[in-house]
Every structure is written in structure tokens, then in C-alpha cells.
């Protein structure tokens, strides 16, 4: 389980995370939802050690996150995080070189699924193709958790369908997924748990199925109720 416990992170004079606590379990898809500036991306960066924080703790299965955790949590950032001059084949090799958890066969499957060509350069990819390639880099390693920041950003409608189908595929099955997205409707039926963020705090946390069954509300309905109140 990835646990974020009472994390406070200050940026200049403002707390962008102000006592944030939530957990993402293995085998479930957890969505961090909120309006722009709520602290969703910052929360993911804190988990990945890409942003320092002043207070609180981040744990993986009860232990503080350290560099060895990076073999167990893969990250799909909201931008292509490989040099523009690199060929996709070189980027895959880079990952294979540095990650013991890298699964080359899965990477090739994902490349085929997203119709990506290894000879293309990272810099020549459209925004949508770059987002798909980011998913390849994030999903190919044999990690227990995948942390995704806006994986639908810049992808066209058919591409979004393809990406959404990944969430119900064997590539994600059994792993814990922590995702931030503005395209809630696209994957609402796949999400197990939602954490609503407002002003750097978790203001509500709920299981989507329970809310759907007991309250007859969609995720967007709850978001509207809580965040726009």
C-alpha cells in the first residue's frame, strides 16, 4: 500500500499540500481528483521523491519510500520525460539498463498495442503519441504500483479509448494504480476508489461502487457536491 500521511509541502509562502493523507492499495485503481491547483500532481511528485516536503511521511507497505522503492513504483508523468533526440528504441534500452524490474517483452507488446515505432525519435512524437509512449515506459516494468499523472492529456478520442482499455487489461491487473485525471468520465467505470483534493487536503475519500449503489451518484456528482460547495 502507498500511504501518504499528513504531508505538508510549502511552495513559496503557500502550502500546496496541507496535511494531505490518503492511501492507494495494491490491486485497486485509486483516482486523485480535484480542481486545478488542488495539489494532485504535487502529491504524485512527493510520492516519487520528485518534490521535497516539510512534514509528514510517505510509505510503501509500511516502510519509508527510498530509492529501492523506485523498482516497485513506476511513474507516468504528464509530459514525455526522455530526451527529444533519443529514438524510442534507445529510450526502451535506457529503461532496461537502469531498471531491474524492466520487462522487455511487455514493452514490445505495449509498443505494438499503441502502434509506436522504435525507430521514431521522441521529439517527433505528437502529444498523443508521446502520452502513449509514456504509458509504455510506465507499464512495462514489473512494478507493484503505477503512478500516473494525467495519462489522457493530449490524446484524441480514439486514443483515449485505447488508453482506457489498458486499465482493464492484464498489463494493469493485480497492480495498484494511482491516477490523476480530468477525464473522470472516461474511466469512471474502472476506478475503485476516489480521493477528492481541495486546497492541498483530502476532503473526501470514497469507493465508487458504494457511492453508486448506496447514493446513486457518479464520481462527477460527488465532485460537484464537494468541490463546488
Amino acid at each position: 500500500m502507498i500511504e501518504v500521511v499528513n504531508v505538508r509541502k510549502r511552495y513559496r509562502r503557500r502550502y500546496v499540500l496541507d496535511g494531505l493523507s490518503f492511501a492507494a492499495e495494491k490491486g485497486r485503481i485509486t483516482c486523485l481528483a480535484g480542481l486545478n491547483g488542488a495539489g494532485k500532481s504535487t502529491a504524485l511528485k512527493v510520492i516519487m521523491g520528485l518534490a521535497p516536503y516539510q512534514e509528514g511521511a510517505v510509505r510503501l507497505d509500511g516502510k519509508p519510500i527510498d530509492r529501492s522503492s523506485r523498482e516497485r513504483i513506476s511513474f507516468v508523468p504528464d509530459r514525455i520525460a526522455m530526451p527529444s533526440s533519443m529514438k524510442l528504441a534507445d529510450a526502451l534500452q535506457f529503461m532496461a539498463d537502469f531498471y531491474a524490474s524492466w520487462n522487455g517483452a511487455r514493452a514490445r507488446e505495449l509498443m505494438r498495442f499503441f502502434d509506436l515505432k522504435e525507430g521514431d525519435k521522441v521529439g517527433s512524437l505528437s502529444k498523443g503519441m508521446a502520452a502513449k509512449f509514456n504509458l509504455v515506459l510506465g507499464l512495462a516494468p514489473d512494478t507493484d504500483y503505477v503512478v500516473m499523472d494525467e495519462p489522457f492529456s493530449g490524446i484524441d478520442v480514439f486514443g483515449r479509448e485505447a488508453v482506457a482499455s489498458v486499465f482493464s487489461s492484464e498489463w494493469v491487473e493485480g497492480r495498484g494504480v494511482l491516477i490523476t485525471t480530468h477525464e473522470i468520465a472516461e474511466i469512471e467505470h474502472l476506478i475503485d476508489h476516489v480521493v477528492l483534493l481541495k486546497d492541498g487536503r483530502a476532503v473526501r475519500s470514497f469507493d465508487t461502487e458504494r457511492v453508486r449503489d448506496e447514493e446513486g451518484k457518479s464520481v462527477v456528482d460527488v465532485m460537484r457536491e464537494v468541490l463546488l460547495a
Partner: peptide, 21 residues
Amino acid sequence: YRDWLGRSTFMYRLLALPTAR
């Protein structure tokens, strides 16, 4: 700076590598 600036923020990847920084 080339790893921070521009369209490809390679520093995301470098800082997340499972190796000592």
C-alpha cells in the same frame, strides 16, 4: 539545464531512477 527545460523534461526520469542521486 537541458534536462529541465524544453518539451522533454528528462530530469523527471533521472531523479526517479533507482540509483543514488
